[in-house]
Amino acid sequence: MNKEKKGLRSSRMMIYLMMILLAAMTVVPFIWMLSSSLKLSKDVFTFPMQWVPEEPRFQNYSDIWTRIPLGKFIFNTAKLSVIVTLLQFFTSSFAAYAFAKLRFKGRNFLFMAYIATIAVPWQAYMVPQFIMMRQFGLNNSHMSIICLQAFSAFGVFLMRQFYQSIPDELCEAARIDGLSEFGIWLRIMLPNSKPAISTLVIFTFVNTWNDFLGPMIYLTKTELKTIQIGLRMFITQYSSEYGLIMAASVVALIPVLVIFLSLQKYFIQGVASSGIKG
């Protein structure tokens, strides 16, 4: 008993040690980011590095809102991210349910086709897609980004993998109880896949939030642009305003972290805690 406790304690120690190491690895760059965001651009890359700027320049944080329409960009990005995430969530969890729990002709073929297309880099079909979107009259509208991002095969793949780990017996029992397939999806699959849903939501949100090339091509009007384009506006042909880039990056980080924190509890609250086992 004693020995076991000791072992437990030492393994705890190990874990804490690792956690400190992890924190150092991830936090140090962000401290640097924060400190750079309070510097003049010319001082960002000077050696030896200054962790605490001599004269912190809080003006960077007011400049970013006036030099470019950052507020508008953040609003646009948030709007796109929310719509895309919602659509992505509904369409892919529907499709994933069929792929994971229903039996029908062409299932495997269709699923393979889905995954295979994830493999083709977007750069390869960017131009045909752009031409097509223009013919639909969708360029220079947020609709283009929504259509582009909301139906990714990735979401289907992710949800399907998680649905697979939900026992088939659950669905069968529900079917016997007279629940429709839609009912099963709503009452059984959804409540049991909170971790998967939060994973998908975070992924989609972050991806849309940080997407650059898509908005770059489809949104050429300033009032439609997104935050990542805004960030790169500080990198111009002849100069790079790294102080401002860092400040804007810090600001851009906040909404995504809020999403993460609000979903965090669901990672540890899935099948296990909803009382359904095996």
């Binding site: 509904f90 369409t91 892919s92 529907f94 499709a95 349910y97 069929a98 792929f99 229903l102 039996r103 029908f104 002709k105 299932r107 269709l110 889905y114 297309t117 083709v120 390869a124 079909y125 045909p128 897609q129 097509m132 979107m133 259509c147 582009l148 909301a150 139906f151 990714s152 095969a153 979401g155 289907v156 397939e181 999806w185």
Partner: peptide, 26 residues
């Protein structure tokens, strides 16, 4: 099959139009 495809359809249609078609063209 009808039930299954109706589950897949919302995603599949968007996916086919905006990704699959340009991709096949590529």
């Amino acid at each position: 099959a009808i039930v299954a495809y109706s589950f897949i359809a919302p995603n599949l249609i968007g996916f086919a139009v905006f990704t699959l078609v340009p991709l096949i063209f590529a």
